[in-house]
């Protein structure tokens, strides 16, 4: 990723953190999309594994979910998710935008499950509908971010 791409990714992460807290303030409750996670996954798909892991860790630190539940588990989970997304990206010769978007959505769903279980909420099925809704919302919001970050890494042919 070019330096401009890194700056863009960090900006997107900060903006998503603000937007997520804003939506949380509008009392969306469980329907609040994990925008920070969405942006972290989108960025991770454009980065090498280690920078992606760092980005994931940073996203975990900015996530509102950090305030409750076991922080170590959330941070490790977010780091591993971002690192895995980058590894997946590296293993593919070509990852089209739709597949990338599916990976982002799956990453968000996995993070939501980690949050639910780590918070002791084992009634995962009860929270499934708002979780799926929040994931779809976040994944939709990640489409322009992912497209923007993909453009910024176009120079690095080995990642495309």
């Amino acid at each position: 990723m070019t330096p401009v791409g890194y700056v863009l990714a960090v900006l997107c992460l900060l903006i998503s953190a603000v937007m997520e807290r804003l939506l949380g303030g509008l009392l969306l409750g469980a329907w609040t999309p994990d925008l920070v996670v969405a942006v972290a996954m989108a960025a991770a798909l454009c980065l090498r594994p280690v920078p992606a892991g760092v980005f994931g860790l940073a996203a975990g630190l900015l996530s509102p979910a950090l305030a409750d539940g076991p922080a170590s588990l959330l941070l490790v989970g977010m780091t591993v998710l971002a690192w895995s997304a980058a590894r997946l990206r590296r293993s593919q010769v070509e990852l089209n935008p739709v597949t990338g978007w599916v990976v982002i959505a799956l990453g968000m769903l996995a993070f939501r499950l980690i949050v639910l279980v780590s918070a002791g909420n084992f009634q995962v099925l009860t929270a499934l509908l708002p979780s799926v809704g929040a994931v779809l919302f976040g994944a939709a919001a990640s489409i322009p971010v992912y497209a923007l970050l993909r453009r910024s890494v176009a120079e690095e042919g080995n990642l495309i």
Binding site: V50, V54, L57, A71, S72
Partner: peptide, 19 residues
């Protein structure tokens, strides 16, 4: 190795946060 280092850092930061 990178992942292990990052995970260790995440655990440390998480512990600091929790404590």
């Amino acid at each position: 190795i990178g992942l292990a280092v990052l995970a260790a850092a995440a655990i440390l930061l998480g512990s600091w946060e929790t404590s």
